[in-house]
Design a protein around this nucleic acid. Sequence first.
DNA 1: CTCAGCCATTAGATCGTTCCAACGACACTA
DNA 2: TAGTGTCGTTGGAACGATCTAATGGCTGAG
Lengths: 350, 350
Amino acid sequence: MPRSTSSSSAKGGPVTLSMVATRAGVSPQTVSNALNSPDLLRPETLERVRRAIDEMGYRPSRAAQTLRTRSSKLIGYGMRPSPPGTTFPVMDRFLHALSEAADETGYRIVLFAEPAGDASLKGYEELLGQHNVDAFVISDTAERNDPRQAWLAKRDVPFVAFGRMWSKRQIGDWVDVDGACGTDAAVEHLIALGHRRIAFLGWRRGSGIGDDRAEGWQRAMRRHGLPTRGRRVESADDVDAARAAVKPLLDAGATAVVAASDTVALGCYYALRERGATPGRDVAVVGFDDSPIAAILSPGLTTLAQPLEEIGRECVRLLLARIAAPAAPPERILLDPSLVVRDSAPTPDA
Amino acid sequence: MPRSTSSSSAKGGPVTLSMVATRAGVSPQTVSNALNSPDLLRPETLERVRRAIDEMGYRPSRAAQTLRTRSSKLIGYGMRPSPPGTTFPVMDRFLHALSEAADETGYRIVLFAEPAGDASLKGYEELLGQHNVDAFVISDTAERNDPRQAWLAKRDVPFVAFGRMWSKRQIGDWVDVDGACGTDAAVEHLIALGHRRIAFLGWRRGSGIGDDRAEGWQRAMRRHGLPTRGRRVESADDVDAARAAVKPLLDAGATAVVAASDTVALGCYYALRERGATPGRDVAVVGFDDSPIAAILSPGLTTLAQPLEEIGRECVRLLLARIAAPAAPPERILLDPSLVVRDSAPTPDA
DNA sequence: CTCAGCCATTAGATCGTTCCAACGACACTA
DNA sequence: TAGTGTCGTTGGAACGATCTAATGGCTGAG
């Protein structure tokens, strides 16, 4: 029965390096080496120290390590308040994925709240100054004039963005989902189902994400020699706008609609129902994001799922690489979304 | 122009207490006192020190403070992965609210990922041992045999739960939403609209949350002398189950349905549509949670919103109280949800 | 005039870890 | 046998804050 003197049950303060050292009959520094540079120790000593560590349930104090090494192994993440329907609908899953990936490398995620329209960067400054945060993850980078990348880069603070920059000037590393690849796959799927008149229902132009998703639809259509003229609307910012905007597309005889988001796809559902049509049977619909609504709609919405676990892992990987080599050339990762097939655009053989 | 020597622009390491002390012409300890016990200083000295702090952009190092005081000002939160549709659908808003409330008191939220069905409490142990976390917030407490409360209480680690314990043995502080109060208010609202045959569509029995929400409906009905027999179904765990389960209620002539969740309410929408009826016009529907779907359904779903900002604030408040007085009697807070009126059960005068 | 008592301030140790330079033991070369 | 090098280990200082106890200046009582 090990851990008889385990830290969790000991009353008098935590188990320290020196206590382990005493027990193992070595100096504190040797215990430190056992953890940080095991190859320095003679195998026999290493084994002895390791056993002592194990028996005593020793865990190094991050506070002391941070103080000494100036690295907190903490990654900051600023949470924006989510105005209903606006920000990306899978934030909680992303955070979980991020947290999990960080945990595996010995890092942890620290949250702070970014006030709504606040460009003050106060939270970043505080986490940096007080907590010695090693790096930041930022998301919701779609807005124009987002000052965060430039601010962090100027101070040589490692960061990675979930979401690429759409302006010409690119700063820093990012991980993003290849929206075009997703809508391209959606078109392929619909063509395999026999559709030819495939429309695109998008956000208003100028949104980087929206334009990207539109582009994938367009290139797939072109590749198959299908016309795109008059098959594309880009003004649908919310459910109601989408409902109205999709009508001309349906009037023009579209048999399938690729939507820029699940929310927009829902607008399409409504429009179909208004004219007595059923999504999936009369007109195929494909959404984007695999938000919680996709699964519970009726019929279930075929949609493009963002690979959130992979995104989380990649974010952490880029961050560690950046910390290790601050001056290395920026790395940018595009990940493919995957088609989640439900009844609004079922599998071809059905 | 203050902050000429600000920490953010200085190249050579951070601004320390001693540097401020030198500048202000006092000892380091005096600067520390200026921050922690300002009343010890002569007003004149205090002013001088404060100016120096301001000019140099000094921020105390949390690592050093933690090392010395054994308090990290960190609050741990274990994220459960969200199996689709299961866990509470407003996790991200709760986290934001929590983070915001914590920030205001000088605390921060640290995340860690709790593996799916893992009862090992490893994350708690690590955060405690390595990061000197001061306290934990736990949620998703609905499961039976949740070992977390007992484990934390045994070690005298302050914690607060979002979600009460439904077993007899209560442990520790919690903050929860008064589900009964919510469904009671829903019934009142429906009665004001002229409804009398008001049904309840709930989860299967045995779920604490579900039973609580059912109870509010029942007591409001009784108070108004309305019958509840045959007006209640409790087996609807997901959308499809709800769709099927609500049918007998509609057959029995219910003119309004109070649902145990927005998801369940959606099932009710489907059932109504199947029989050619329109929610809100033919049969009123009230949901629970104000999840993202409520706003984008058509017609908009009247539902009960959890006061997440207040919940976040209360969680932090209870935590601080517990940290200050570990042996104080447990405090339990029930907050009222608020009715968000949309078209599925509009305002009475409409 | 001296001494207790109070006030504002300070000196020195301390928290738990890692960095740096030095250490003794041993083998190998000359 | 003495000199050089390597290997594994150690001692002491440092990171930046707070704690405890002590300091000197000042007032007012005896």
